[in-house]
Design a protein around this nucleic acid. Structure first.
Lengths: 236, 236
DNA sequence: AAGTTTGTTTAGAGCCATTAAGGAAACATA
DNA sequence: TATGTTTCCTTAATGGCTCTAAACAAACTT
């Protein structure tokens, strides 16, 4: 447990980082399919099966790397938020949204894995590192919207006007976030999130190429709508 | 060229259909990764390399199958449209939107390939069958919106209020659809399309699972917004 | 000093994609 | 009808991939 174990630990960590870096390099330079256990091992200077001492298999490796991307994105967003600790919530929220797109556009391959991992659906188990990382990522947004809700509540629909099925789901979600937002506010939050994140995914996954070469103004427009929905200032 | 060649042609077509069916079966039952040339060939009763007489390689096979999915989806939507030839445009438009979701939800694996093919980005070449099929798919929407625009124009933003970059892109798009929609109308059309299609993609690709178990009410709500934006009746 | 854990290697089974070489049937034509 | 061509298919073979097994050495523990 002392210096000696610490050394091993340190070495292991270093190797893990090397592995992640190699996998990322392969992903960025040669695409998803190039990220094979063998290729990564070769890149690191190990021979094939050695990698199984770090990850149980191909899927786990990819899951871990993807989780790393999530963490990097979340960190970038947190940084954008913390760079303006004293600014009004609305301003921080917009900064975080912009930081998200900036990262995604700068790292399309990585963002592609975040949105649609090349591995099978059983990947969605709520126990995986990946799931955890995704939660942290969404958390950044949620926290800001909660803060906004508590300090400067935004307009919400009458819960009675929502279909029963939607109300039930929102109520369940409100519970999973420990009631930090009541269901009406959760609805507004989720609607905004879906529009923004959905737009970004479409852009990065080339679903807008048929009409747009640069989706930046679309994103800004979406942010303006979001600002309106959340009753925050959108500097003109 | 007569009956004899016709026979060969017929056989070839039948084999192609068998191949597509086998690939689809593998996709649906065992996921993307199970759709390999060998597995498909085995399923059809041929041995491996025989398939190269039908497709130049794995990518081309997957591209062709994906194009088939696009065609099926487009046909479903066209059918929904034509089932109500005499109904007002708005009603037909809503029917088409609902038919799109119904198909996507019933065939999530297939829709997954439509949105994010498991093959490399060079897949996006505008010459591929896939691209062509995608165009036809979007066309169904576009046609209806054009009809709506010509018979009962919806409100549009002042072009002067749009950022220059956006205006240029919209103008280019307006040109690619042969000016059937002026750029302001194209903007409204594309915004609606992005919201609706984006929401559907997020649902089918499990990006909403963290909060929703059934996205149907969200979709309906989106349709209501869309109806508002396009100034069509949304039956209450 | 002996035993255990950890990191690694090679060997190998069983997939997969793809190419090459060859055979047999269907078709076209002389 | 006989001959040549096209089409469809097979087997063989190469090389890559995942993953398991067996073996070995170094590092750590006691």
């Amino acid at each position: 447990m002392s210096a000696q174990t610490g050394r091993r630990e340190r070495l292991r960590r270093a190797t893990l980082e090397e592995i992640h870096a190699a996998a990322r390099k392969l992903l960025v330079e040669q695409g998803s399919a190039a990220v094979t256990i063998n290729a990564v091992a070769r890149q690191v200077g190990m021979s094939g099966p050695a990698l199984y001492h770090y990850y149980a298999g191909h899927d786990e490796l990819i899951g871990a790397v993807t989780a790393g991307f999530y963490r990097e994105l979340a960190a970038t967003m947190e940084q954008a938020r913390d760079a303006r600790v004293d600014a009004p919530v609305g301003e921080r929220l917009l900064a975080v949204c912009r930081a998200m797109r900036t990262w995604a556009v700068a790292h399309p391959a990585e963002f592609g894995w975040i949105f649609a991992s090349p591995i099978a659906p059983p990947n969605r188990r709520p126990d995986s590192m990946r799931y955890e990382a995704a939660v942290r990522f969404e958390q950044v947004f949620l926290d800001l919207v909660v803060e906004l809700w508590e300090t400067r509540p935004f307009p919400v629909p009458d819960p009675g006007s929502l279909p029963a099925s939607l109300r039930e789901q929102l109520s369940a979600y409100s519970a999973t976030i420990e009631g930090r937002l009541p269901l009406e506010a959760a609805h507004v939050f989720l609607s905004c999130w879906i529009r923004l994140y959905g737009l970004l995914c479409m852009e990065v996954l080339h679903q807008l190429d048929f009409a747009f070469t640069d989706a930046a103004p679309l994103y800004e427009e979406c942010l303006r709508d979001l600002a309106t929905a959340l009753a925050i200032d959108y500097p003109t």
